[in-house]
Design a protein around this nucleic acid. Sequence first.
DNA 1: CTGAAAGCGCTTACAG
DNA 2: CTGAAAGCGCTTACAG
Lengths: 342, 342
Amino acid sequence: MAVTRKDVAKMANVSVATVSYVINNTKNVTPEVRKRVLDAVDALNYHPNLLAKSLATRETRHVAMLVDNIQNPHYGRLMRGVQHAAEQEGYIVSVLSINYSTREAMRELVSRGVDGVILALGGYSIRDFSDMNLPTVYETATLQTSYRKAIFDMVRLFRDLGHRRIAFLSGLPLTERPHVRFRDFMDALQSFRIEMCPELFIDGDGATDEAAGYEAADRLLNCGSEFTAVFTVNDLMAIGALKRLWEAGLKVPADVSVVGCDGISSSAYTIPPLSTIQSHSFKLGEALMLQLISQIHPERELAMPVQIIEAKFVERESVGPARKLSGVPRFLQQPHSPNQTG
Amino acid sequence: MAVTRKDVAKMANVSVATVSYVINNTKNVTPEVRKRVLDAVDALNYHPNLLAKSLATRETRHVAMLVDNIQNPHYGRLMRGVQHAAEQEGYIVSVLSINYSTREAMRELVSRGVDGVILALGGYSIRDFSDMNLPTVYETATLQTSYRKAIFDMVRLFRDLGHRRIAFLSGLPLTERPHVRFRDFMDALQSFRIEMCPELFIDGDGATDEAAGYEAADRLLNCGSEFTAVFTVNDLMAIGALKRLWEAGLKVPADVSVVGCDGISSSAYTIPPLSTIQSHSFKLGEALMLQLISQIHPERELAMPVQIIEAKFVERESVGPARKLSGVPRFLQQPHSPNQTG
DNA sequence: CTGAAAGCGCTTACAG
DNA sequence: CTGAAAGCGCTTACAG
């Protein structure tokens, strides 16, 4: 049915081996023979069967990317970065949307012969797959977006604007190993000598979308403690929080300042425009893909791009001077149930 | 290196053929032999090489999905639907983000042996690939999300609320074959005897994100004609438009009503909450995938789910009664350059 | 019920 | 420089 190497060989009056040699440019071939082959390829509109090739070479140039929430636009940019780099190198990438990386999922991928996998699953759910000897990359200490500087910039601004009671909406549980952004945030508070207010750190069950942000802001409003600023673990949650604050009649930034994280395109279009920590996910995606390739082909010694990608604090209208608090000393305020802290 | 069928055969003291038979359940095998094989599979932790299998069976259970803007959350839901159905049927799907479907892209996919492809490219950019005999599906007259009823519901409400000058922000060019949603919209206007205002139909160059919506709203504000309602081709554009209207000091819905389309999760969190035409993209994704499978395996006679998926008009606070217009008869207003109409 | 063998379409030492 | 042949790991008529 499909035209194969054999057909080309016959038409060009050469062996199938020779066809391989000219197509892959893997051995010297007389120009004359070469032309004959190429002409036949053209004439027959021949296209190699990559499956057969993969079986023989043990390489598919097919990688998988596991993502937990394919709907988060943040991952969209990441994917574009991954695919951009992949395309350059002749790789194809399958995006699988799963909540946690299981051995079965990885097994299936191995069976399908993928050359490697990119895990974009937000830290917690990454298990150890080293025994499968399938090249795997994910954000690590040496290859990641670093939010630290940007978070420090944000907290510094908060301090300069007089904010002392700053909330954090996490979405994720705060009890376990705390989220990196949360750690950076706490470090920044300490560094700028702003007292931590654990009762203002709202955790969650893992969801980090608008609804989770709305919900978290609701709990924050009902926690009985005052606050003048809110930092959310991502923009989606900030959007949800903005809505809840608005419903509560609070003006942003007059009554409360809000900062998100990621820098998704919508963040510039909220009302008021949302300050955020802009990450360059496209770049991160590219870097992850290149890292993966160099793990697949250690000998290629790819020029690796920047490995630590600095996020940037982007100040927009959702941040302003802290309003005056009621002034009731904290120890005299009515008791409230503190949230868990990391 | 990897354990193959041969190893299993040796350990179980049978031929490789027999191993195939028990693994694929494709022939009767003595329970006793069967057990021997299964035990060997277990003991060796054998997993079949799907590449080799595909080469032999000419089936990969691998499909590709081409998407133009992987960042639009609308496509995120579509993908989840596709993947959900795919998973059920043992398929894996590769998502490629491309702007237009080229023959080369399709060729590559054919070479890689994908069983079929799903085109989610927004109509215009779909060429004819029937000559490649690669099963292909996309939204068609018989399998699609229908916005018509919902759009009629919206226009009816507009009419009841006194709106007579309704703008449309398209994002896409209006000159060529008009977008289905636009056609439905015009039909609805006519049906409810609302005069069309072509000068309020703002086209675009193809971008349909927040920036495009902002930009289109800007042009609308400067077109010199009054309007009391705006319908945008998707929610992203509505979000951008909302922002521009807000900047212009217009209150939504007091001064102008706004309705988006798609029903992305953010739409419920804009300020004010955005009325929208909610599509069930997940369902559409499932249906497309099933359709593709039944095209790949005509003999399987899959129970096809609903083929026309009705979108639903969701009324939220962004819609209200029309404000009183200035009252200057239209033919006396200062001249303006009308936009192109479809 | 089981197995020997040809075949899927490619690659690649090896020999000439 | 070119080709015959074995091999990649599976499937599947066909024969026994």
